[in-house]
Protein backbone atom coordinates (compact mmCIF):
# COMPACT_ATOMS: atom_id res chain seq x y z
CA UNK A 1 0.00 0.00 0.00
CA UNK A 2 1.39 3.36 1.01
CA UNK A 3 5.09 3.80 1.55
CA UNK A 4 6.20 6.01 4.35
CA UNK A 5 8.41 8.94 3.36
CA UNK A 6 10.87 10.89 5.45
CA UNK A 7 8.54 13.90 5.15
CA UNK A 8 5.66 11.86 6.53
CA UNK A 9 7.78 10.86 9.48
CA UNK A 10 8.87 14.44 10.05
CA UNK A 11 5.24 15.54 10.07
CA UNK A 12 4.33 12.80 12.51
CA UNK A 13 7.21 13.85 14.77
CA UNK A 14 5.65 17.30 15.09
CA UNK A 15 2.22 15.82 15.78
CA UNK A 16 3.83 13.58 18.41
CA UNK A 17 5.89 16.47 19.80
CA UNK A 18 9.15 14.62 19.40
CA UNK A 19 12.28 16.26 18.06
CA UNK A 20 14.27 13.79 16.03
CA UNK A 21 17.80 14.29 14.78
CA UNK A 22 18.60 13.71 11.11
CA UNK A 23 19.98 10.27 11.93
CA UNK A 24 16.97 9.39 14.02
CA UNK A 25 14.67 10.47 11.22
CA UNK A 26 16.44 8.20 8.78
CA UNK A 27 16.35 5.23 11.09
CA UNK A 28 12.76 5.91 12.15
CA UNK A 29 11.61 6.11 8.54
CA UNK A 30 13.21 2.77 7.81
CA UNK A 31 11.88 1.00 10.91
CA UNK A 32 8.40 2.47 10.71
CA UNK A 33 8.15 1.51 7.04
CA UNK A 34 9.10 -2.03 7.90
CA UNK A 35 6.50 -2.29 10.65
CA UNK A 36 3.79 -0.53 8.64
CA UNK A 37 4.42 -2.91 5.75
CA UNK A 38 4.06 -5.82 8.12
CA UNK A 39 0.80 -4.67 9.68
CA UNK A 40 -0.71 -4.29 6.23
CA UNK A 41 -1.10 -8.02 6.52
CA UNK A 42 -4.51 -7.13 7.93
CA UNK A 43 -5.67 -6.09 4.48
CA UNK A 44 -6.19 -9.73 3.62
CA UNK A 45 -8.87 -10.06 6.33
CA UNK A 46 -12.42 -9.43 5.25
CA UNK A 47 -13.90 -7.14 7.92
CA UNK A 48 -17.12 -6.15 6.18
CA UNK A 49 -19.92 -5.93 8.73
CA UNK A 50 -17.54 -6.46 11.65
CA UNK A 51 -18.10 -4.10 14.57
CA UNK A 52 -14.88 -2.48 15.80
CA UNK A 53 -13.84 -3.65 19.26
CA UNK A 54 -12.32 -0.79 21.22
CA UNK A 55 -12.63 -2.35 24.66
CA UNK A 56 -11.51 -5.76 25.84
CA UNK A 57 -14.70 -6.24 27.81
CA UNK A 58 -18.10 -4.88 26.86
CA UNK A 59 -19.42 -2.72 29.69
CA UNK A 60 -21.85 0.17 29.68
CA UNK A 61 -23.02 3.00 31.91
CA UNK A 62 -20.35 3.19 34.55
CA UNK A 63 -21.09 6.30 36.60
CA UNK A 64 -20.06 7.94 39.84
CA UNK A 65 -22.36 10.08 41.95
CA UNK A 66 -21.89 13.85 41.95
CA UNK A 67 -20.43 14.08 45.45
CA UNK A 68 -17.27 16.14 45.97
CA UNK A 69 -14.11 14.58 47.36
CA UNK A 70 -11.17 16.24 48.98
CA UNK A 71 -8.86 17.77 46.39
CA UNK A 72 -5.09 17.64 46.73
CA UNK A 73 -3.36 20.41 48.66
CA UNK A 74 -1.85 22.83 46.16
CA UNK A 75 1.70 22.00 47.23
CA UNK A 76 1.06 18.36 46.33
CA UNK A 77 -0.45 19.32 42.97
CA UNK A 78 2.58 21.43 42.10
CA UNK A 79 5.21 19.24 43.77
CA UNK A 80 6.33 17.48 40.58
CA UNK A 81 6.19 20.55 38.35
CA UNK A 82 9.47 21.25 36.54
CA UNK A 83 8.70 24.95 36.99
CA UNK A 84 6.10 26.63 39.17
CA UNK A 85 5.51 29.59 41.43
CA UNK A 86 3.57 29.54 44.67
CA UNK A 87 0.27 29.18 42.80
CA UNK A 88 0.70 28.02 39.24
CA UNK A 89 2.51 25.76 36.80
CA UNK A 90 4.81 27.74 34.52
CA UNK A 91 5.66 27.16 30.88
CA UNK A 92 7.40 29.30 28.25
CA UNK A 93 5.16 32.08 26.95
CA UNK A 94 2.39 30.81 24.72
CA UNK A 95 2.74 33.18 21.80
CA UNK A 96 0.06 34.56 19.57
CA UNK A 97 -2.91 33.43 21.57
Amino acid sequence: MSSLTREDVEKVSLLARLRLSEDELTKMTEQMSQIVNYVELLNEVNTDDVEPMAHAVEQYNVFAEDVPHQSLPREAALANAPKSDSECFRVPAVLGD
Partner: peptide, 27 residues
Protein backbone atom coordinates in the same frame (compact mmCIF):
# COMPACT_ATOMS: atom_id res chain seq x y z
CA UNK B 1 9.65 7.02 20.63
CA UNK B 2 9.15 4.40 17.96
CA UNK B 3 5.81 3.34 19.39
CA UNK B 4 4.62 6.91 19.93
CA UNK B 5 5.51 7.66 16.32
CA UNK B 6 3.81 4.53 15.03
CA UNK B 7 0.66 5.16 17.04
CA UNK B 8 0.52 8.81 16.07
CA UNK B 9 0.78 7.74 12.45
CA UNK B 10 -1.88 5.03 12.61
CA UNK B 11 -4.35 7.45 14.23
CA UNK B 12 -3.63 10.40 11.98
CA UNK B 13 -5.91 11.83 9.34
CA UNK B 14 -6.09 9.61 6.31
CA UNK B 15 -4.70 6.51 8.02
CA UNK B 16 -7.13 5.96 10.90
CA UNK B 17 -9.47 3.74 8.95
CA UNK B 18 -6.83 1.76 7.13
CA UNK B 19 -4.91 0.95 10.30
CA UNK B 20 -6.56 1.68 13.65
CA UNK B 21 -10.16 0.97 12.73
CA UNK B 22 -9.19 -2.08 10.70
CA UNK B 23 -7.26 -3.42 13.69
CA UNK B 24 -10.29 -2.94 15.97
CA UNK B 25 -12.34 -5.06 13.60
CA UNK B 26 -9.79 -7.83 13.34
CA UNK B 27 -9.61 -7.69 17.13
Amino acid sequence: KRRIMLGTYTLSAGYYEAYYLKALKVR
